[in-house]
């Protein structure tokens, strides 16, 4: 079943409004938005989860919450859920039923002097591999159905709108960490990553221009050979 975050191609007439000009350079609409972002990054530095786990936590919000929460509400809710799930804080501490206890992780708390280095270091996801890529530039490919094949209902980065569609390989990026595994404690399981171009007319019934294309970055396990 398609989950709410997988919204590419959903039909809606809601206009995409650019913010009013006076906010064009505002980075955060509200001070608590800035705090939500900073808290999320600082807690990430505790090293108890990775980016794929963090994305999956947001996707696991109740569908009703995902649809009604604003952007940073999703972040903060998912962060609270993750902190409890990973045992960094307890549900009793969160609800105020017990006082905050000492944490073994406090020595890992991000220090002001470390922020610049952590943000500029980033986290590259390309990995060495011994396997040869199954596909070459210009190959035609057929995407499989959407959904995680390693963990039922798990995290995946193949959007529903591009599932079971024919596309063409336009770039090969080497092997990258595979989110379908990495989000679930199954290791990095690096897989070849490709940019795959789909003709808009192969994705949508009504297309304004038959020359238009949509390009997605897809891992090899998402791809097969068209029959």
């Amino acid at each position: 079943m398609k989950r709410p975050h997988d919204m590419g191609g959903d039909q809606t007439d809601t206009p995409v409004r650019s913010e009013p000009l006076e906010h064009a350079d505002g980075v955060f609409d509200q001070p608590w938005h800035a705090d939500a972002l900073a808290l999320t990054l600082a807690c990430g530095a505790l090293g108890q989860w990775n980016l794929d786990i963090s994305r999956h936590a947001r996707e696991c919000l109740a569908p009703e919450d995902y649809r009604t929460f604003t952007y940073y509400e999703k972040w903060i809710a998912a962060l609270a859920d993750l902190l409890v799930e990973r045992g960094v804080i307890s549900q009793m501490e969160l609800s105020g039923e017990t006082p905050p206890a000492q944490s073994d992780l406090s020595s890992r708390a991000l220090k002001p002097s470390e922020v610049a280095a952590v943000l500029s270091r980033g986290g590259p996801t390309n990995r060495d591999t011994d396997t040869s890529p199954a596909f070459s530039i210009d190959d035609s490919v057929l995407t499989r159905d959407a959904g995680n094949k390693l963990v039922a209902g798990g995290h995946t980065r193949l959007p529903s709108y591009a599932a079971q569609k024919i596309g063409r390989i336009v770039a090969h990026h080497g092997a990258h960490v595979f989110p379908d595994a990495h989000a679930h404690g199954l290791g990095e399981m690096p897989q070849h990553l490709y940019s795959v171009a789909f003709k808009a007319i192969d994705l949508w019934p009504d297309v304004a221009n038959s020359e238009d294309k949509v390009i997605l970055d897809l891992w090899e396990p998402y791809l097969g050979v068209p029959v």
Binding site: L37, A38, A42, I89, P100, A101, Q102, K111, P112, V115
Partner: peptide, 12 residues
């Protein structure tokens, strides 16, 4: 719980 540092948040 000393898991975050407010100055680090402000730096981010």
């Amino acid at each position: 719980k000393q898991l975050i540092n407010r100055d680090a948040l402000d730096e981010i």
